[in-house]
């Protein structure tokens, strides 16, 4: 059972927000960054972009540990933090991962 703390819930909220607003945000981004458009149109698009909430930006999404919810020391290929990664690797729960020895 993964540990779902408030920070994970916040991250899930951000992910939902990003997914729901992504298409519209992209459209505004396209207009705002297009140098062929008149300056006024680009400015309006930028203002519209600013009206989106904090949790609609993809940069607010952070990959946390899927087991413990820890935010630092994440092995991105496994989505696990360093301690859980180590424990699982030692229990042979991660295929292809074993402790180095030479």
């Amino acid at each position: 059972m993964p540990n779902v703390n408030c920070r994970v819930l916040r991250d899930i909220k951000a992910r939902k927000g990003v997914q729901q607003n992504e298409l519209l945000r992209r459209a505004y981004l396209y207009v705002a960054r297009d140098q062929r458009q008149p300056a006024q149109v680009r400015h309006q698009a930028q203002l519209q972009l600013n009206t989106f909430g904090k949790y609609t930006r993809p940069t607010t999404v952070k990959n946390r540990c899927t087991e413990t919810g820890r935010g630092r020391g994440i092995m991105s290929e496994f989505g696990l933090c360093r301690t859980v990664f180590r424990a699982k690797a030692r229990n042979h729960e991660l295929p292809g991962v074993h402790k180095a020895s030479w």
Partner: peptide, 27 residues
């Protein structure tokens, strides 16, 4: 070399894969 903003249309949408990160849970 005018910036056309095409890269914002060309990039794949990241939302669907972002939603798959955490395993589904029922509290």
């Amino acid at each position: 070399s005018i910036r056309t903003g095409a890269k914002y249309l060309r990039k794949r949408l990241r939302g669907p894969s972002m939603m798959k990160y955490y395993p589904p849970y029922e509290q």
